[in-house]
């Protein structure tokens, strides 16, 4: 039986700790969802002229301090702005409109501006479209791995590959949970990149094993 080196043991222990802590954080505090997936408040203002998002950002920084804000241009003429934040009170709305009126020399009325609620997106709704493609791809990859590295043991190859792919994703999600990286637009791309990297790592590992096996046979 192969002896596990001290270095591998330390790495395994470290990864186990990360995954356990990540799981605890996820189950207790939950994940930190980006503003895009949280329940938010939105106001929309018709400025009647071109504007720079950076200028609106300066105003929102003053009126909505320490609050995440999404500012987007609306419609093809890009003369309306949509401001989304975790919360916008009536008072903040009036302040925002006053400052925007002052900046763009317009006369928007706070009474005619409605604060609307944008509901949150459930985590399962975010990941649902990705599940089937990931499962199909993984199954095909596992079949390929089992055939390509059959000399190293089919079952062993499948189990090891699946285990390493799952561990890589678990570590990534744990790190996201622990250091409170917001779940947003970049999370899935990040998952994809880690998946590709772990695939490359696993293949490299088995290729080395196959080479050694061939040498042994010779």
């Amino acid at each position: 039986m192969k002896k596990i080196s001290k270095k591998v043991k330390i790495i395994a222990l470290l990864l186990a700790i990360i995954i356990i802590v990540g799981a605890i954080v996820t189950l207790t505090i939950g994940l930190n969802f980006n503003l895009r997936y949280q329940e938010t408040k939105k106001i929309q203002l018709y400025l009647e002229k071109d504007f720079e998002i950076s200028d609106i950002k300066k105003i929102t920084d003053e009126v909505l301090p320490n609050q995440d804000v999404i500012i987007q241009k609306v419609e093809v003429y890009e003369d309306s702005v949509s401001i989304i934040s975790t919360d916008i009170t009536e008072e903040q709305k009036i302040n925002l409109i006053d400052k925007i009126n002052e900046k763009y020399e317009i006369e928007l009325s706070a009474d005619n501006t409605e604060i609307t609620t944008i509901p949150h997106t459930r985590g399962r709704d975010i990941i649902r479209p990705y599940v089937v493609p990931f499962i199909i791809a993984t199954v095909i990859i596992l079949v390929y791995m089992a055939i390509r590295y059959r000399k190293l043991g089919m079952i062993k190859t499948i189990v090891k590959t699946a285990f390493l792919l799952v561990i890589a994703q678990a570590v990534l999600l744990s790190v996201i949970a622990i250091i409170r990286i917001p779940i947003g637009r970049v999370t899935i791309p990040l998952v994809l990149v880690v998946y590709v990297l772990s695939l490359l790592g696993v293949t490299n590992y088995f290729e080395k094993g196959l080479k050694e096996k061939k040498k042994e046979e010779e």
Binding site: P129, A137, I141, M145, L199, T203
Partner: peptide, 17 residues
Amino acid sequence: KIIPVIILAITFCFTSW
């Protein structure tokens, strides 16, 4: 070494999402 990545890419090409 990149055959699994090629499999992944081709599978994803057939996904409509």
